[in-house]
Amino acid sequence: MSATLASARIGVLTFPGTLDDRDAARAVRLAGGEAVSLWHADGDLQGVDAVVLPGGFSYGDYLRAGAISRFAPAMDAVVDAANGGMPVLGICNGFQVLTEAHLLSGSMVKNDHLHFVCREQVLTVENAATAWTNLYAPGQQITIPLKNQDGQFVADERTLDELEGSGRVVFRYSGWNPNGSRRDIAGISNERGNVVGLMPHPEHAVEAGFGPADATGPRGGTDGLAFFTSVLASLVHA
């Protein structure tokens, strides 16, 4: 199994204005995978087994967050691969790109209080069966950083009911809703569970000494690492 894990190649897609691609690549490596850098203008995904769309401000968030990135050549390939079952994770701006690309439902608007938020956020894992959450326990509470201004998840009531009814609410904010997101939703998946998007940042909580505070110390938290080990596990079982 370890040989298969080591050979799993996870693409990290960089747009102009992406900030967290290096952290995402590092998270992939810490989880035991090989990180492959992908460039937005290149329509070739280089045979990767999964793709991470990292956080940042692609195209300066001009027009709407994620709106212009959606039409990058690499996104056509990502949409095709996602529809074919390839695991895709969108973090923060990456989540916004996935909603603009219609791979995920709903959209993000400005935080209800209009402020940029940067905090260590507690989430409840609502669905531990997706490609990116299978090593968490249902109902598990995790703490990972949250940092954004356009983080308020919105969708119409019918879409929200559909997401709830089909188990596609993957994460909910716990304790405090930091941005006015409908029904405290922090992250969702597509129907198949291979595409997941969330506003908080698992890739910033993958190595003790550089993560959020936890029981082991001020920066001991590594609750985000299981995103990346989960996808490697799902590739082994695929």
């Binding site: 027009l63 709106a67 909603t99 603009e100 709903g106 959209s107 919105v154 119409d156």
Partner: peptide, 8 residues
């Protein structure tokens, strides 16, 4: 297609 997002 581009200038608006019909969801919002």
């Amino acid at each position: 297609m581009l200038l608006s997002n019909p969801i919002i």
